[in-house]
Design a binder for these strands. Structure first.
Lengths: 189, 189
DNA sequence: CAAACCCGGTAGACACTGTCTACTTCCGAT
DNA sequence: ATCGGAAGTAGACAGTGTCTACCGGGTTTG
């Protein structure tokens, strides 16, 4: 395996195990077994390396979500529930990677997992929402955007501890179901 | 004004103007006109100073929200719309402060804007939700939690650019309205 | 009244960071 | 066979957070 690939791999490993704090250029280089100057031959700057690591995270999340969204022929609502579960699970079991992925101060502003990852994911979401909702409402893109934001907010605030404290629940399931019911309409419409 | 207060003030100014990156201990000390060792007499560590600055941000947000939520006798739904607008406006016009407030890696884990700020805010939100919703549903705490998460997610993702790109809208108003309608039920219930 | 003490602050050392700049080494093309 | 550039090393540089030694004055204490 080339040095470039190993740098990314080490970074992914490091951020999932020890969080964003540990992602210093020199530490990644050390663990990859190269000098601190070597990464510069593959990534012009520290941010570029972090962006590559985050991109790997986006690819991982995308893979899990598309896999979940595409499997079987279950009704769209069930798929959305599974998709939301995957999103939350990713955020809560890999908090370091999740944080990195949305830390725009660490990432190149045009790196962007955005066009290559967010938009496809958003397309899947929009499609499922269109088919799953049981009452009329705003444009599907708006509903899908609001729902995605809801998922993301739950992941963020739950990881932060606020929601556990405020709602008294001990997992985020009820919040996820409440969000889906809210944005899609009653279950048996 | 004492040195301690000036350090916090300078920090608030700096983060709102130049973002979290600029909040180094030494830079804050420089702008406050003291040596880099001085802050240590008031804050045992850099994180403690940042926590104090974030606390100021929470106080500011709380003040705006409670002011908005309490004014006049308009119906609860209108207040919630105004409250959401304040939250989004705060996040989008002070992105640096908003980011700092939710960067748990920079803040002491028990600093916590949590008990002193989030919970009161959450109480207000729960109360308004209880009175504003037009259909039955989960416990008010759960609805309020999901709605707060939705607000927070919209603020986060909008600031990140994803939602503007995905929904095609050019402000977050439609998303806010969609979230409120979703969690509270149809407007004229 | 003098002496001890601590509070608020300075200045410098230390290890660490990201970036930059030589300096090697080595392989492939002319 | 030679040249050139890619890949990697090593060191310098400014900047960071923390730690320690030091200093000046009040206040308390003997």
């Amino acid at each position: 395996m080339g040095v470039r690939a190993r740098l990314i791999e080490v970074g992914v490993d490091l951020v999932t195990r020890e969080g964003t704090q540990s992602l210093t250029l020199r530490e990644i280089a050390r663990r990859a077994g190269v000098s601190h100057g070597a990464p510069r031959h593959y990534f012009p700057t520290h941010m570029a390396l972090l962006s590559a690591i985050a991109r790997q995270g986006f690819a991982d999340l995308t893979a899990r979500v598309t896999e979940t969204a595409g499997e079987g022929l279950a009704d769209p609502r069930a798929r959305l529930l599974a998709l939301g579960g995957v999103y939350l699970d990713f955020a809560l079991t890999n908090p370091g990677m999740f944080e990195l992925m949305f830390r725009h101060d660490l990432l190149e502003s045009d790196h962007l997992g955005l066009r290559e990852v967010s938009l496809p994911l958003f397309g899947i979401l929009t499609d499922l929402v269109t088919r799953a909702r049981t009452r009329p409402g705003p444009a599907p893109q708006v509903v899908a955007g609001a729902l995605w934001a809801n998922l993301h907010g739950i992941a963020q605030l739950w990881g932060w501890g606020s929601l556990r404290l405020a709602t008294g629940a001990d997992d985020a399931g009820p919040l996820l179901r409440a969000a889906l019911d809210a944005h899609l309409g009653p279950e048996n419409g």
